[in-house]
Design a protein around this nucleic acid. Sequence first.
DNA 1: TAGTGGTCTAGACCACAAT
DNA 2: TTGTGGTCTAGACCACTAC
Lengths: 249, 249
Amino acid sequence: MSELPAYLRIASDLRAKIVSGQLRAADRLPSLARLMERYAVSSTIVRNALAILAREGLIEGRSGSGVYVRDARRLVRRSNGRQQRTESGSASPFARDAAAGGQQGGWESDSAEEAATEEVAARLAIEPGDPVMRTRYRYLADGHPVQLATSWEPLAVTRGTSVERPEEGAAVGVVARMDHIGVRVDDAEERVTWRAADETELAGLELPQRGGYVLVIRRTYFAAGVPVETADIVLDAGRYELLYRIPIE
Amino acid sequence: MSELPAYLRIASDLRAKIVSGQLRAADRLPSLARLMERYAVSSTIVRNALAILAREGLIEGRSGSGVYVRDARRLVRRSNGRQQRTESGSASPFARDAAAGGQQGGWESDSAEEAATEEVAARLAIEPGDPVMRTRYRYLADGHPVQLATSWEPLAVTRGTSVERPEEGAAVGVVARMDHIGVRVDDAEERVTWRAADETELAGLELPQRGGYVLVIRRTYFAAGVPVETADIVLDAGRYELLYRIPIE
DNA sequence: TAGTGGTCTAGACCACAAT
DNA sequence: TTGTGGTCTAGACCACTAC
């Protein structure tokens, strides 16, 4: 019944073996020559099938060695509004997630003052060109980068305060930092989308150079309806699961 | 600096033109022959580049005619706990989203009693084999399918009540349906992941037959900590954006 | 009929790993 | 040195569309 072209049939077949666990992380797939025999197709067709799985992050080819199943350990990013404030002072949301996954969390960051672009201005409900503090984060779990983020805060809110530079307070998260200067964050909005990773992200997330996909979360924090921080959070789409707890009413 | 292989360079180049709006929905790309000339590569390389973009849902080839930019209109799925109960009686969450997007919403569904699989049992905190009501939904916007969903409800909760068959009350959503039988849903959990679409989903979502990607939301509703419904919701990853509003504290 | 995209073959050449 | 995967060429054959 399946009238799929050969390269898709091979890709589906191998994909099923990986997601079902029949092939496990770090296992070596049969060589190209063997796959050509088994499926009775040319090398090009096998290569096409493997290229699809590589872009999905399921396998990784090593020239001269073989094709291996990639570690697909699920990382979880929790977004749990109700717990954010009570846990402040102890750890950032990211550090909490890492600890929950039994991993050693860490991050790098750098900040600079910039003028708001049109898009950032719209998200922060300020004027294009207004001064913002831009911070880039790179989050690590067990030494490997797993999240990239860029945040923007209107300097009209934080200028001259003790939390003007986010990196110094990154350990506790945005909600707790804003609490310090009397800004009560009471609401957040997250917009989740998916797209192909760009070159910077491929390198920054240690994705295979041949490409990969990311989930992008555009998050904005509000205090009494006024945006006080917005961020783009970029995650390896094949490795991450996003967990939302939603109180009803 | 960019040492990308030709097929990825071409894919990135065309992708950039599409997402930037330089090439718009329904525009026709140059023919394979022209792209071969422009990039000075063989047909295979151009085809590889186009295959990547097709799998991403950005383009669609029509044999004998040309390659066209696909309509990438963003659909938004809102998950807004605080408004769910107050809006009940008027429309389901899906119908509300469709209306917000200026579209005509609709759905098909079919229900049957089944025995809980191990996975469903774990999600509903019941025993494998316990009876559940399984319902499959297919949501339409302007006549086109945009969401697939399968839900499971423990019959221990709904057996013999007026909402035993979810389809008859689908118009109002789970929270309002459960309200009718005195079950106060007060919490929901959603787990968002991404993966390749399977054959059923390709057909059900009118995705290109050559493949595509979906966002999968595994949602569970709770009443006083007890799971009363769980569902797998499948969305075209290239068309949908997920919007979460998160009250802090 | 001419042009289009979709699938597939049968290789070549290279860098690299394992030995 | 042999085998491996990554990139790429130069086509063929087919189904389909537009004219």
